[in-house]
């Protein structure tokens, strides 16, 4: 490939790094979730956007929360485990069982997200992409096939009508 071909090809995925992170995600997930191996995993994140307007200065501030998202098709359960971009640790898992949640749907606007309402009081909106390059903000993992499988599961077996 010529110089210009490489120049316009765009960023390439470092598969070794992605595989290593996928392994770490599995280790962390299995550490906090019972029978973790029965869940398939993707990386997702939440966004908390706060807008401000102080006279001349206005804009928005976004907080990103990284998540290891596991799903078990037979149990129709999604588990979200908070983590950090370098996967040095994780928090406590939260379980969303289809039979117990209030509603779940895929949002298209303003962002493409998987939204779950466990009850009337709150909700979680999980954003997920095939790959995100910014490893300071997101977990560096390539997950095209897994994301397609999760989307299929969410849309056909988890989302409420």
């Amino acid at each position: 490939m010529g110089f210009f071909g490489k120049l316009f090809k765009g960023p390439e995925i470092d598969q070794a790094k992605s595989d290593a992170n996928a392994k770490k995600m599995r280790l962390l997930f299995n550490q906090v979730v019972e029978d973790g191996d029965s869940y398939r995993l993707i990386f997702g994140y939440t966004e908390d956007v706060s807008r401000f307007n102080y006279g001349f200065v206005h804009g928005s501030k976004t907080k990103i929360g990284n998540l290891i998202v596991g799903w078990n098709e037979d149990r129709q359960t999604i588990v979200a485990v908070p983590t950090v971009p370098d996967l040095s640790g994780c928090g406590e898992p939260t379980y969303y069982r289809r039979g117990e949640i209030l509603k779940a749907y895929r949002n298209k606007y303003p962002t493409d997200a998987f939204v779950i309402y466990p009850d009337k009081r709150g909700y979680i909106a999980i954003n997920a992409y095939d790959w995100l390059e910014d490893e300071k903000l997101y977990v560096y993992v390539s997950q095209e096939a897994e994301l397609a499988a999760f989307t299929d599961f969410f849309m056909h077996r988890f989302a409420t009508k």
């Binding site: 280790l27 962390l28 550490q31 996967l87 040095s88 640790g89 994780c90 928090g91 406590e92």
Partner: peptide, 10 residues
């Protein structure tokens, strides 16, 4: 404070 679990040794 939420409990935090460090990455286990491989």
């Amino acid at each position: 404070p939420q409990p935090w679990h460090p990455l286990p040794e491989e």
